[in-house]
Amino acid sequence: VFVDDHLLEKVLELNAKGEKRLIKTWSRRSTIVPEMVGHTIAVYNGKQHVPVYITENMVGHKLGEFAP
């Protein structure tokens, strides 16, 4: 499973602090992992960042699938 390192670091850091804030990313190719559930990730679609709230059903899919 591929997840960009910088994105995973941000998610794990927020989980350690117990925070839930918006994470901006250009990494549409990253796979959604269970650690991301409950976070809102702003995924770049080529024009703007689209906020995507991550749920359990999204695990295993790519971030780009949810930012048309």
Rank of each mutant, 00 (worst) to 15 (best):
T31Q: 12
E13N: 10
H39S: 01
H6G: 08
H6M: 14
N15W: 01
H49L: 06
E13S: 09
R21G: 15
K20C: 06
P68F: 09
V37T: 13
T55E: 14
H6Q: 14
V11E: 00
H49G: 05
L7A: 01
S27Q: 05
H61D: 11
L14W: 04
S27F: 04
I54C: 10
E35V: 15
H61L: 10
N57D: 14
K62W: 07
K62C: 11
H6V: 15
Y44R: 03
W26K: 15
E13P: 00
D4A: 04
R21M: 14
L8Q: 02
F66S: 05
V11P: 00
L14R: 01
F66I: 08
H49R: 02
G18R: 05
G46C: 10
R21T: 12
G18W: 02
L22W: 09
P51L: 08
G38S: 12
G60S: 11
E19P: 02
E35S: 10
V50D: 12
S30N: 03
H49V: 02
G38Q: 13
G64V: 06
D4N: 08
F2Q: 06
P68L: 09
N15M: 02
Q48S: 12
G60M: 15
I23K: 01
H39K: 01
R21C: 13
V43P: 08
N45G: 05
E56I: 11
G18M: 05
L63D: 00
N57I: 10
T40M: 11
Y44K: 04
D5L: 15
W26P: 06
H61Y: 11
A67Y: 03
G18C: 07
E9G: 11
F2G: 07
E35I: 15
L8N: 02
E65K: 10
P51Y: 04
R29C: 15
K24I: 13
L63Y: 01
A42E: 07
K62Q: 11
F66Q: 07
A16M: 12
N57V: 15
V52L: 11
V11D: 01
E35T: 08
I54N: 00
I23S: 01
V11W: 01
F2H: 09
L8D: 01
A16R: 13
K47M: 11
T31K: 05
K47I: 15
T25A: 02
S27P: 01
I54M: 10
M58S: 09
I23F: 03
W26Q: 12
T25G: 02
S27I: 07
I32P: 00
N57C: 11
R21W: 09
N57H: 10
H49C: 05
L8H: 03
K20L: 09
N57Y: 10
Q48F: 13
F2N: 04
E65P: 05
V3M: 04
L7N: 01
W26Y: 14
L63T: 06
P34D: 10
N15K: 02
E13K: 08
T55W: 11
L63N: 03
R28Q: 05
K17I: 12
H39G: 01
R21Q: 14
L63P: 00
P34R: 13
P68G: 07
H6F: 13
T25Q: 00
L14E: 02
L7R: 00
T25M: 00
R21E: 15
T55P: 02
H61Q: 13
E19F: 06
F66V: 07
Y53A: 10
T31P: 03
E56W: 10
G38L: 10
V1W: 12
M36E: 01
S30V: 03
V33A: 05
G38R: 08
E35W: 02
G38A: 11
I23G: 01
V3R: 01
K10I: 14
F66T: 04
S30R: 02
N15V: 03
F66W: 10
V3S: 02
E65H: 10
W26D: 14
T25K: 01
V50I: 15
E65S: 13
R29Y: 13
V59P: 11
V52S: 06
N15L: 03
E9F: 11
I54K: 00
K47E: 08
T31H: 15
P34K: 13
R29P: 09
L8E: 01
K62Y: 07
E56K: 11
T40H: 08
L14D: 02
K62N: 10
D5C: 15
F2P: 04
T25L: 01
N15D: 03
V59C: 13
W26S: 13
N45K: 06
D4F: 02
Q48V: 14
G18P: 01
G18H: 06
V3E: 04
V59N: 07
Y53F: 13
V50H: 12
T40R: 08
L14K: 01
V50M: 09
I41M: 05
E9Q: 15
S27C: 11
I32S: 00
E19H: 06
L12F: 07
Y44C: 07
T31I: 08
G46L: 09
V37R: 12
